[in-house]
Design a protein around this nucleic acid. Structure first.
Lengths: 219, 219
DNA sequence: GTAATGATCAATTAATCTATTGAATGTTAG
DNA sequence: CTAACATTCAATAGATTAATTGATCATTAC
């Protein structure tokens, strides 16, 4: 095979995969699916999409082999075709964070609107957990917790947190995490907890970032 | 700031970076720039693009902050804005290799058309080099060698190799490398060397992959 | 200064992508 | 069997992207 012809074909194939990623809604879907398999309905509830539009974007991702689907009864469950898909998204996101001034500005504004700048790294958390000094709190929706969470984390979904405050200890440090750096749930949880006299901080990383690093998870 | 609004903005920004990558020619340009800074003319000579079209794609990459340019005299030299850009491309390429059957088929056909299946990994090379058993040969164009190469490699560009065969030793193993897994130059060099009685193998990895791993390089 | 060279710009057309709409399919509950 | 529900499909119009062409700009060589 001619070299030029080979290159044209291979770069086209690779670009077609990249194109499947090159849409804001599809990126958001990828990040949601990194939390675990989801039905179309669940995706619609967690994004700003109509059912038909979400389904269409899912078809696009599927034909690029970035996601797969499995029908169970009335529902189609979509999931990432491979952890590598999340890795690509993570690498891309990091590139955006480091190169794009507008993204930096948006993140800063967002953090500040949450009055909450303190956070903890994965390795700090591992250390604290070993010493039994911290309580790890998963504030994502129950479904996501159930399809995988950081080892020893307990689940109190964001929207149930207020009514369950009394179940939490005041003497232990509470570390809250959610879907990742673009997710607001842990920010809001920490804000609520601090307001009620708990000692809470946000974990810098979300579940998929933790999992892809090979750190301990449970199901 | 409203969470939905924040997400819409941030995913749009991230998608705009991804879009800048989502084109076969721009991927090829990224891979070329990973070898070192290049003028527009050099890019045109090494791809299948017209000057105006290459320049246009470079503007696209530039406004997404994936590349930068620097004018020196008549020439504009473009380079990757950060090693992270190459990392994103590498991660994406690996995803393609693992997920896309068509890419697997193309690679296999290509390797077979080169009658050359033997190759050496980076760690095997490091070991051989330490024992002084191997000669490392950079077969990329001189410019690329000069803007950075694997430590202790010598330069014989692909198109000068035939006339310089007599300068090479017959008793030592020759390890040839080029731009990376999609580049034909090392395949062709190994084929030529073997045909003339040398003991040659291809390094699996190209210069940018070696460099990004933090392995020893020279300039 | 003028020509040559390297690169960019602007305008155009064709191709592709996206959201919307409404209809169609498949599955379950009653 | 029928209604309700979850999802997909198909058609459309508007927006975006890409290659081409020819013109323009910037720098150097003569």
């Amino acid at each position: 095979m001619n070299v030029r012809e080979f290159k044209n074909k291979i770069y086209s194939e690779l670009a077609s995969i990249t194109k499947a990623l090159a849409n804001p809604h599809r990126l958001e879907i990828i990040e949601l699916l990194a939390q675990g398999p989801s039905s179309v309905e669940y995706i619609v509830d967690n994004t700003n999409l109509t059912v038909a539009n979400a389904s269409q974007h899912l078809q696009t991702l599927k034909s690029a082999r970035l996601v797969r689907s499995e029908r169970r009864g009335k529902y189609s469950y979509y999931s990432l075709a491979s952890p590598k898909v999340f890795e690509v998204w993570e690498t891309m996101r990091e590139l955006g964070f480091s190169q794009n001034a507008e993204i930096g500005k948006l993140m800063k504004e967002f953090r500040e609107s949450r009055h909450n700048l303190e956070s903890m790294t994965s390795s700090q958390l591992l250390e604290r957990m070993q010493q039994g000094k911290a309580l790890l709190l998963d504030v994502r929706p129950r479904e996501e917790y159930e399809s995988g969470h950081i080892a020893s984390a307990i689940s109190i979904p964001s929207d149930e947190l207020f009514e369950k405050l009394k179940e939490l200890p005041k003497d232990k440090e509470i570390v809250a995490y959610c879907r990742g750096p673009l997710c607001a749930m842990a920010y809001d949880a920490v804000e609520l907890l601090n307001k009620h006299g708990f000692k809470a901080v946000r974990l810098e990383t979300g579940f998929p970032e933790w999992e892809v690093k090979g750190l301990p998870v449970e199901q």
